[in-house]
Simulated scan of single mutants.
Amino acid sequence: MSLRLPYKEQSISEVLLGCLGFALIIVTVIATEIVRDRQGKGIGEKFLSGSLIPGWIWESYTTIGIFTFGAACQQLTSNIAKYVIGRLRPHFFAVCAPQPRITPAPAYIQDYECTSGKSEAMLKDMRLSFPSAHSSFAMYCAIFFILYIQVKGKWRGSKLLRHGVQYAALMGAWYVGLSRVVEHMHHWSDVGVGFLIGAAYAALVFVFVLKPKKYGLPTAWDQPAPQSALPRPALAR
């Protein structure tokens, strides 16, 4: 019965999700590195092939490159699982219209033929339900963004503003996963595993590949202001 849901057009395509995810990270990284460089918290200028490169460009290039590497790894992991497992999507009957008609009696039927006349691409895609690559990429972007802002997006203003932005990114990924279930593209377990894959890759790539501790010790901007020493009382003569 879980395969008899109607077919719906997806509201968030792979291209749209990819553009939004990369745009979020690229804009955030570049803006953050420029601000840090102007505050004197950057790595300074670097020499590359005899040319002097501003530090914020080097840091942005490194961070975005590592983010892209992690995105490729998590996407490859999800796609390998899709083709190996081949779980049917919830709209399988609507897309395939299998013959002979499957009765409600519990049974495994492997010998059937799709008679819906749908394109070969749709018939292939209906077998790629587990895990949800949309959910995996969305959660990967959200967790990477949250960790990056937590480490490098520090300012003297309200901390709630930073945490509010982090929460918004997490809710954006959560919405992407929910939309995949509501639009009958995935089972809830497909989305759950996709979230786990994306979160795991984001944490691993950020901690062990990007290595945020290389940014150095906290500067005076992040450290609490030292308490002023009290004047010594004059010694009595």
Rank of each mutant, 00 (worst) to 15 (best):
G177E: 01
S158V: 00
R162K: 15
P233E: 14
L128E: 04
M171K: 12
P90I: 00
H134Y: 08
I53D: 05
M171H: 06
A200I: 07
I12R: 04
V182R: 13
S158K: 09
A105T: 14
V182C: 08
Y112W: 15
P231Y: 02
K82T: 03
T219Y: 02
G21P: 00
P54H: 09
R156S: 00
V84A: 11
R127M: 12
P104Q: 07
F206I: 01
D37R: 07
W221D: 03
H91N: 15
W188Y: 14
G42K: 02
G40C: 07
D111Y: 11
Y7I: 01
L3N: 03
D190F: 05
S135D: 03
E14L: 07
F137S: 09
I149M: 15
T103N: 13
A81Y: 07
P233R: 15
R38E: 11
A133V: 05
F195Y: 15
Q166H: 10
A234S: 12
Q223Y: 00
Q166G: 14
A72P: 03
M1D: 12
G172D: 01
S132I: 01
T115H: 07
I30G: 02
W58N: 08
F208G: 05
F47H: 13
V181I: 15
T62V: 09
T103H: 12
M1Q: 13
M122R: 10
Y83H: 15
M139W: 10
P54Q: 08
T77S: 12
A142H: 00
S116N: 12
Y140I: 01
I30F: 12
L217E: 15
I25H: 01
I143S: 05
L17K: 10
E14Y: 12
A133L: 06
M139S: 10
K82E: 04
P98I: 01
F92M: 02
E59C: 11
V181W: 07
S179T: 10
F93D: 06
D111A: 14
E183Y: 06
D222G: 00
V182F: 13
T103C: 09
P212Q: 03
A142Q: 00
